[in-house]
Nucleic acid binder design. Structure first.
Lengths: 230, 230
DNA sequence: GCAATAGTGTCTTTAAGACAGTATTGG
DNA sequence: CCAATACTGTCTTAAAGACACTATTGC
């Protein structure tokens, strides 16, 4: 039995929160097709490489990050016949959530890499759609997992965690109710014992990620957007 | 720039509820590798075919179903280098939820097709893992979407819908509280006007799917299992 | 009548939303 | 002292859990 051949790529939706806004990592394409256009970072899966390994490799190449901290998960796959003019290419998209780190622009494939606030972007290929799916995934994951901490450094304040929610959801939350919810949900965060110093106002206690993987009950947005099927 | 070539398949986790238990559609493999072993239905994506179209085609081929009713969504992709002894094959798994229909065993690829209660199965390739991921997806989707109705015929009773939840989650729910929740959530179900006939006990009103896509607030399991990252 | 299943009402408990008030820093 | 931010407590409200009760059929 014979079958068609495909190329397989991984593309990354890399998100971070900086200056109170949600940003996505983009690269300017240095080769055809879509030369000069902005796109999600990504590349071909190698001959003997697992999909997740390819995603981790690309992430490390683009951001210089490889250790723990942050979060990487598979998002979805895209394989419309005309999505890449070079031929039949299926891409497996991954979603990465990272603390706000300076990005070493010295990526290997990309001419330039840059954090851009999410919004109306006009990306190469079907990357606008992939980004939209990644954003919706990130927004809904904050509801029922403690993953917001992936956007924070190892030790963070409750206020910083709340600002992550506010940036990702685009709505403001009551600091007092948020504090109560986070600290009273077992395994969401655990105190490090330290506090902030040198900030205006009363010093805040520092926390690290807890060991819970699921929030029960969840922390719901007011207006949940539609999810996407098929 | 050269890059490795892959074959791309779609595999289907097709679920239904029959006799109060959750069942998955399996086929016995009629060719190597894993000849004679049970596996998820699936096949190669054609040269000019979208991934979702391939999934719909395979579903139609295996179940004879093609119209509306039921639900089909992308689940995840699997591409470990050694997952298929024939070479580098990436599979895009889809999850289908169907009402309990007789399956015409005259599938094209498969020697036999059969509904099997979910549980300890020993499937070909990495299909045990794919099935486990599909089950977890189905379980969690019932929490925050009205998708349970995809397991039901076009008109159904609240009790039938509850039995779907009980089969998929493996726990029993209070019929009265369930009734209140379902009928008071806007867009979950809408009455057809009809009732059951000839059943023991008081006739039950019939409902069809509502137009909501999200349940807010959700209908939570007691014990949510871990989700799976990366 | 009785068994069976459908559907309603009510009380309790949990947790979210709103928001007053207290605590601890820097200036 | 005041401004600023962190944190606690209280009241109200929404909604789940438990469960008594009524409704409508077949026998």
């Amino acid at each position: 039995m014979s079958y068609p051949v495909f190329a397989v790529t991984v593309d990354l939706v890399v998100l971070t929160v900086r200056e109170g806004r949600l940003h996505v990592l983009l690269v300017r394409r240095g080769c055809e097709p879509f030369l000069g256009r902005w796109a999600l970072p990504g590349g071909f899966v190698r001959a003997d490489e697992d999909l997740a390994a390819a995603a981790r490799r690309e992430l490390a190449e683009e951001t210089g990050l490889d250790g723990p901290g942050g979060h990487l998960e598979q998002l979805a796959s895209y394989g419309a016949p005309e999505r890449d003019p070079r031929g039949r290419v299926v891409t497996v998209a991954y979603l990465a959530l990272l603390p706000d780190l300076p990005v070493p622009t010295a990526g290997t494939d990309a001419a330039e890499a840059e954090w851009r606030p999410v919004g109306r972007l006009d990306l190469a290929f079907d990357h606008d759609r992939i980004l939209a799916d990644g954003l919706e995934r990130a927004r809904s994951k904050l509801e029922y997992t403690p993953l917001a901490a992936a956007f924070c450094p190892p030790a963070f304040t409750i206020a910083a965690l709340r600002q992550v929610y506010e940036a990702v959801w685009g709505e403001s939350l009551d600091p007092r109710n948020f504090h109560r919810k986070v600290t009273s949900t077992p395994g969401f965060v655990s105190p490090t014992g330290g506090t902030t110093e040198g900030e205006p106002g009363r010093p805040a206690r520092l926390y690290r990620r807890g060991d819970a993987t699921l929030l029960n009950p969840p922390l719901l947005r007011r207006k949940a957007l539609d999810d996407r099927s098929e």
